[in-house]
Nucleic acid binder design. Structure first.
Lengths: 265, 265
DNA sequence: GCATGTACGGTACGCCATACGGAGTTGCTT
DNA sequence: AAGCAACTCCGTATGGCGTACCGTACATGC
């Protein structure tokens, strides 16, 4: 647990932190903290006030220790963020692909990720940058998602891309949805207020003559919905696209359709 | 152009900045700078060294002015980022849906966005947070994307969701692709180095027995591809899903095809 | 019992965005 | 022509941040 110089971005150290390998020292004073306590304090802060409010000082204060004491347990803030991410990912339960069928299993993953982002809005700011850190939960999730599309006649590359497609979609939608109500309008003014206040200006700037389609859609009230109102809609289409691929890879099936007694619905 | 107190997030001021409405003053000394020069300097810095290197000091230095002079033209850094975003979005040309057909037009949009993110990797960090600022280019793009799916028998809400689906997918994929080679591994160590250095540890941590599917896909070399290798693949599936929807919304077409003299296309 | 390696954390450095206010400049008003 | 209001430019200062450095206190192994 010794503080290492680390210069910049040390993979070994970061992985050891994520997987909690690395023996504790025998020599010095007893440790008053744990990585877990630090991570959970950090998560609480981020949940409550956003990533912007998450500072090493704030974490230390919440734990009643000096700021620099954190660095005994964690090499730096970047690594703390990685562990936070991997930790909350553990909240998602991993569906059993074999029992559910690929479509339902993928759907469950999508919903779980979406819901996770509601509970911890800051994850969307993290699963952009370098989440490929392969912590234990990330790894377990990768295994689970890939397993949903295994044994469907896809190549390994196609499997990875199909999973990547669903992930990309979910992240893309969730991002706007979450960022809008969060620190999007960085501080001050809520989403509603901001929108209400800018509408008169927008109505002057965005002339129906120049933007007919946009104003038509606008007039239909579409943009007054929650920003992720289309989540289910888009997910269905994505899965439809995947389904078409899978069918095309198993051309024999529809022909031999009469064989099993029940092809449910 | 007077500096306003602005407290926090002023919609009117921000919109005026984006649309360049707002008369210039008659009274004081001639202005030595323009919003455009500031924005372009900022874009150059972000292109070269990433958003992390973009500070008000850096912009001012590049322009050879004092830091605080920038605040005469721009209310703050957040607003500068908004204008930067809207500005680079103008690099994308907007395909003509009527001439190309919806699928090709949507494809062009997707490719344009993807390519934009290669040229300006920092945009992916911005099109999460509150880009709904409705600057001129953002608005023009919204009109263009919606127009691609107009007149296809979809409701307004469906139109918005279809566009949202493609956008979400493109952003999701592009994000990982870009963030990986960029400041993902925040500073120091390139992507290749980092991966090479962590592989031995990962091979010890990720046992094939526990993660059979992942290791199988891994062994197939899928993860050695560029992180957005699946871009075209996923896009095709997304468009397939949309195509199925559109077909289902025009059930009458094949049946009643003979009625009007020319149902174009 | 002493050396060693560790935990803790105060202080300090160099960044950052930006509030404030003064000095100099311009053009309108009288 | 004079005065003043509005404006630009920007030096200084404030309060934040991550974290390097290092002194002090402590627990163990020898």
């Amino acid at each position: 647990m010794a503080r290492e110089k680390s210069g910049r971005a040390n993979p070994a150290r970061t992985l050891a932190l994520l997987w909690r390998t690395g023996e504790e020292p025998t020599r010095g004073p007893k440790q008053g903290l744990t990585v877990d306590r630090i991570v959970h304090a950090a998560i609480e802060i981020a949940d409550a006030d956003g990533l912007g409010a998450l500072s090493m000082r704030a974490v230390a204060e919440r734990l009643g220790v000096g700021t620099m004491s954190l660095y005994t347990y964690v090499p730096g803030k970047a690594e703390l963020l990685h562990v936070m991410f991997d930790t909350v990912l553990g909240e998602n339960e991993l569906p059993d692909a074999a029992g559910l069928g690929w479509r339902t299993a993928l759907e469950r993953h999508a919903h779980a990720d979406h819901a996770l982002a509601q509970r911890h809005p800051w994850v969307v700011q993290l699963w952009g940058p370098g989440l490929l850190l392969m912590g234990p939960r990330i790894t377990a999730r990768a295994e689970s998602t890939l397993r949903t599309v295994a044994h469907l006649g896809l190549t390994e590359t196609e499997m990875a891309h199909v999973v990547g497609l669903v992930d990309a979609y979910v992240r893309g939608v969730t991002q706007v949805a979450v960022d809008v109500n969060r620190d999007a309008v960085s501080s001050g003014v809520g989403y509603e207020d901001w929108w209400a206040e800018s509408t008169p200006y927008l109505e002057r700037l965005i002339q129906p003559a120049h933007f007919p389609t946009l104003t038509r859609v606008w007039a239909a009230g579409t943009y007054e919905e929650a920003p992720d109102a289309g989540f289910e809609f888009g997910l269905r289409l994505v899965l439809d696209g995947i389904e078409a691929l899978i069918r095309s890879r198993r051309p024999a099936e529809p022909i031999a359709a009469a064989e099993p007694p029940a092809t449910q619905e």
